[in-house]
């Protein structure tokens, strides 16, 4: 069976799949069978407009120094971002927009795959208020 190759649109509109109104499971496959094939006339319609909320994250060690190797993965229902957390002395917080209409999960791991000994994660219900989360990594 051919794998499905859904088309997803994201901007200030919610994501959606091709064709109109389909879910990820019902997305239509766009079949490419050989070299030089041109598929034209595809019309993609995104979901309804959505708003974003501010997510502020700080990842630090107990002595206050930022964890500059942190890898932050932010997921929601059918939405995912892996962000670069690049703190500076003046700005230890990283700020990211996240969809307001989804429950959000934030996970912190080490970008060099070192064992952090325990899970560092937090979940936030859908809402419009800004989120602040301070992760303290114990070496």
């Amino acid at each position: 069976m051919e794998p499905q190759r859904p088309s997803e649109v994201s901007s200030n509109w919610d994501s959606a799949y091709y064709p109109l109104g389909s879910t990820r499971e019902k997305a239509q496959a766009i079949e490419i069978t050989g070299p030089g094939q041109q598929v034209k006339g595809l019309v993609i319609v995104p979901g309804p407009p959505i708003t974003y909320r501010r997510l502020a994250i700080r990842v630090r060690f107990p002595d206050g120094k930022p964890m500059t190797t942190a890898r932050v993965r932010i997921t929601g229902n059918n939405w995912e971002e892996i962000v670069f957390y690049l703190p500076t002395q003046k700005q230890p917080w990283g700020q990211f927009p996240v969809p307001a209409n989804r429950k959000i999960r934030v996970e912190v791991t080490d970008s060099w795959k070192r064992d952090l000994k325990r899970e560092y994660a937090a979940e936030f219900d859908a809402g419009t208020t800004a989120i602040e989360k301070d992760f303290v990594i114990k070496p």
Binding site: G36, V43, P48
Partner: peptide, 17 residues
């Protein structure tokens, strides 16, 4: 591959995005 996919983005009212 020389393959391309080409199309349009339209909002639910049919307006081009």
């Amino acid at each position: 591959t020389g393959n391309t996919i080409e199309g349009q983005l339209r909002d639910p009212d049919g307006k081009l995005l």
